[in-house]
């Protein structure tokens, strides 16, 4: 499989600048939206598993929106903008966004509910 990968890369070279640009764009969107989801979860008064479920569902919606609005949807093909669409888009920076989410979640929960 490694040999085939290498040949594939030689035939269709990857532009590193574009990959970095895309990763940065996705990370920015994730950071902003996950903090907002934290505000939402806190104001709704969600606690424990419900809050994390809220974050997962919200991130899935954001990924779908990026996929449709920014990556031309299914017609653009999964590999036009991402080397690996799973780690690049659907799971991209989920852990980094979780930090911002928990931060604003606890803050708004403390202000609004408690």
């Amino acid at each position: 499989a490694a040999m085939i990968d290498e040949r594939e890369l030689q035939i269709h070279p990857i532009v590193q600048d574009s990959m970095q640009h895309n990763t940065k764009t996705i990370d920015n969107i994730r950071a902003l939206t996950s903090s907002l989801f934290g505000v939402g979860a806190g104001a709704l008064g969600l606690s424990s598993y419900a809050g994390f479920l809220f974050y997962l569902v919200g991130s899935l919606i954001v990924s779908t929106l990026i996929f449709v609005l920014r990556a031309e949807g299914p017609k653009g093909g999964a590999d036009k903008y991402f080397y690996n669409i799973w780690t690049g888009l659907w799971l991209g920076d989920l852990m980094g966004g979780l930090m911002g989410f928990v931060l604003t979640w606890t803050l708004v929960y403390g202000l609004v509910v408690a």
């Binding site: 600048d17 764009t25 954001v62 590999d79 903008y81």
Partner: peptide, 12 residues
């Protein structure tokens, strides 16, 4: 998402 920069194709 609409405000962010458009993604760039990664294939040369």
């Amino acid at each position: 998402i609409l405000h962010s920069a458009p993604l760039r194709p990664i294939r040369w």
